[in-house]
Amino acid sequence: MKCKLCLHEKPLLKRSHIVPNFMYKSMFNGGKRLVSINTNDIGGKVKFMQTGYTESNLLCANCDNGILSRLERFASLNIYSEPSANSLVTRKEYDEGGEIIPYIRFENLDYTNAKLFFLSIIWRCHISKLEVFSDVNLGEHAEQIRRMILDNDAGDEKRYEVVLIHIDTDGSRPSKAVIDPRQYTSEGNTFCIFHINEIMYHFNISEHNKIDLFTKASIQKDNIMDIAKLKGKWARMHFDMYMGRKLLMKSNIKH
């Protein structure tokens, strides 16, 4: 069978992660189950899973255990863990008050590795046959992103921008959950949003009529990445907008 990344005829793995396990860190509830929510379910029904999403016959060992695992190791060590003492990456939180939104700033964070890691997530959602990812359709952009990952070329910072926003709803919304990614098209612009464990990942797909978010807060070639921190009512508003309705915390979801 043909690998979705290198396009070579090779034996394919029986189990490839769509989302790496470290992105679920601290998400498992008291029963060691992962909380998943389907936005297309009118009742906002909660699903519990023992592990994250995996799929068979997508990738060969070289691409999964080589190219993608290298990007995952970079992200795990430099973004999703405290930087080690000998790491060049620094992370600092800023909360200046007033009208400035608090944010987390990463400096010396390699632009290529960081951007390609995030793009690999939305690309894997696109190639997946799992229903939870069915809303993601990158169209002709899937091939361009595939080539970027394969060639280790993150491209221009104004193309396929990625923006992260941390959501703190004070426990009033099930934000410590995996919520199926959604794709939006507005006035010629297409973008995707994927909520995982209190972070909303925003992916700009097309170059037309970009929303301000992508022109002001995307990962930059100067190796700086900022993550805005929304709290209280602003976090609830952003979460509800993503869901398309209010989805209050269920009493049976415990973190």
Score class of each variant (00 low, 15 high):
S84T: 13
E107Q: 04
I193R: 02
H141M: 01
M243H: 06
K158Y: 14
H238M: 10
N152H: 13
L213F: 01
L138I: 01
K254P: 01
L5Y: 06
W234L: 05
E96A: 07
A228M: 07
D168V: 00
E72P: 03
S172M: 06
V136N: 02
I179T: 14
G139V: 04
D156C: 03
H8W: 08
L77N: 13
K92S: 08
G97K: 02
F118P: 05
L130S: 10
H126M: 07
T51V: 05
Y242I: 02
I104H: 00
K229H: 15
N29I: 01
K92A: 05
M249R: 12
L59M: 11
T54C: 12
G31I: 01
K4G: 06
Q183I: 00
H126Y: 14
L150V: 09
V163H: 02
K47Y: 10
W234A: 15
L88S: 14
D156H: 06
K115S: 10
V178K: 04
P11W: 08
D170G: 10
N78R: 09
M148E: 11
M249F: 09
R105W: 07
S16Y: 09
D153A: 06
Y111P: 12
F203C: 02
D95C: 09
H208F: 07
G44D: 11
A217Q: 12
T90M: 03
K254L: 04
D168E: 14
N252V: 00
S76T: 02
K176A: 15
W123I: 05
M249W: 04
G98N: 08
D226N: 15
N137M: 06
L230Q: 07
V132K: 13
L34I: 03
T51S: 11
D135H: 06
F214V: 00
T54H: 07
A228N: 07
N57I: 02
G98W: 06
N78P: 08
R33K: 15
K176F: 13
D180V: 01
Y103C: 06
S186P: 00
F191Y: 15
L119P: 07
L77T: 09
F48S: 05
E9C: 00
H255L: 15
G52F: 03
D95W: 02
V35L: 04
E140W: 05
N189S: 14
N113Q: 13
R159I: 06
K250S: 14
L119H: 04
A142I: 00
L88W: 05
V136E: 00
P83S: 05
S251L: 04
T169L: 03
K47S: 11
G30L: 06
S206C: 01
